[in-house]
Every structure is written in structure tokens, then in C-alpha cells.
Nucleic acid binder design. Sequence first.
DNA 1: CGATGGCGTCCGAAAATCAAACAAGATCGT
DNA 2: ACGATCTTGTTTGATTTTCGGACGCCATCG
Lengths: 115, 115
Amino acid sequence: MTEERSSREDLGTRLRDARKYCGFSQEEVARHLSVSRSAVSLMESGSRSVNAMELGRLARLYQRSMESLTGTVSSESGSESVGLLARATAELSERDRQEVLRFAEFLRSRSSTSD
Amino acid sequence: MTEERSSREDLGTRLRDARKYCGFSQEEVARHLSVSRSAVSLMESGSRSVNAMELGRLARLYQRSMESLTGTVSSESGSESVGLLARATAELSERDRQEVLRFAEFLRSRSSTSD
DNA sequence: CGATGGCGTCCGAAAATCAAACAAGATCGT
DNA sequence: ACGATCTTGTTTGATTTTCGGACGCCATCG
């Protein structure tokens, strides 16, 4: 909950910075998103969550990538293996695929440090 | 409203495709997001909105960009002028900047077709 | 100094979300 | 083939969030 809150606040801060950088008022942004101005204020203070579509429109309005707004790293360098695994197992039988997935699940649960 | 709904369904479909491609169950994704499994099901059917943070974590889990999940185009080719404008006005006096913004606002309200 | 614009915050009403529960279909192990 | 297990969709009523309007505050404008 506290964790949730802090990253929402970070997002809010970035949103506010981006908006001010572009010279928009909350009112204008509100109209752009079809929400009330107070909603925008709450978003920027982290007291209201921003949904995916709103994030998309904001990114477009502010000329920024979504990632730069949320602060998430698009792709952690270490493992691009996920897609490849899926591709590989797609050709196996339903049975064997299940095996592989089970094993992968096992590995995931074993090393719970990373995602 | 109908518009809102359809793009949420699109997002849901992409989320479901991505999840299946990676071989995850809704249960696993739910744990990853710290939500109930039913929530994931509703997300994928478009009956529940996905907030920014959830979208971020999903993008990371599925090894995809947020844009590819929401289907939004990161930057519409036509106008990269917004950032530039902001940069330019940053050096003006408070007064003059207000003038410019007022003018920009006027232009925006004039041609209400685009964003 | 009055007016205006931008913003934060509070409020009750309305909507969204929650998790738990059940049903259904598929696949598994034996 | 049969029961066990897994995965998913859907419903339900309680809870939480969000809504937009209103108010006050502060800065700037005229």
C-alpha cells in the first residue's frame, strides 16, 4: 500500500512536470482527457490512479513515452528469453508444453528475487 | 463511452494474447500484480480498467512496451512542436510567456479537430 | 483594488473494484 | 474411463474509488 502510494506519487510528479513543461493548465488537460479538473489535480498528487488509456493520451499530449512517465524500464537486459521460450514450446505437444511450463514455474518460484 | 469501451477491450485482448504467448496463467499474473485472479480476467475482457502501474508491471512481465499493449502510437509525426515551444518560451519573461500561451490556447480552441 | 486564472481540497452521490464462490471446460494421472 | 486438478468466466454484495461542483487561497492582471 505504501509502496503503491509512493510510485503513484512519482507518476503524479512526472505528469505535473510534463504538463508544466508543455505549458498546459490542469483545465486544458482535463478537457483533453474528458475528466474534471479536480481529477487531474488528484492524479498529479498521486491521490487518484491513472488508467492505461489516460496514460496513453497524456503521453501523446506531452510528447513523451509512457515509460518515461511511469518511470518503468521498458526491458530489463538480462532476459529476453520469455518470448523465445514461448516460441519454442509452441511447437511441442500440449502435454510436453505443460511439462516445460511446470518446470519454468518451478524455477520461478525457486528464485523469487527477480521477476 | 462506446469509444472508451472498445479501446479497453482492445487492450484486454492484447494483454490476454501477451500472457498466453508467455505461457502464464491468470493466477500467476494476478500474484505478480497483487490483485485477485478475477481482476485479471476482467482486465482481459475489458470490464475493468488497467491503471498505469499495472500496465507497467505487465509490460515488464510480458517483455513488451506499454505502447504495444495499449496500441497507442508513441509520437504522431505531425507535431513535435510542443516540446520546442515549451523550450522557447522558457526563456521569455513571465509576462510574455503568458502572452504566447494565450495565443497558443487560442489556436488550439480554433482548430478543435486535432489534439 | 477588483477581477481573473490556476490550483488544492472537501463533499455527498455515483461508479468501479474487490475477493470469494460457483460453474464449466479442458487436461492430467492412474 | 474416471476422478482430480487446472484454468478461466461470471456473479454477488460489501468496500473503495472516483466523480464533478464548490469553496478558499494565492498570484497576476487590468
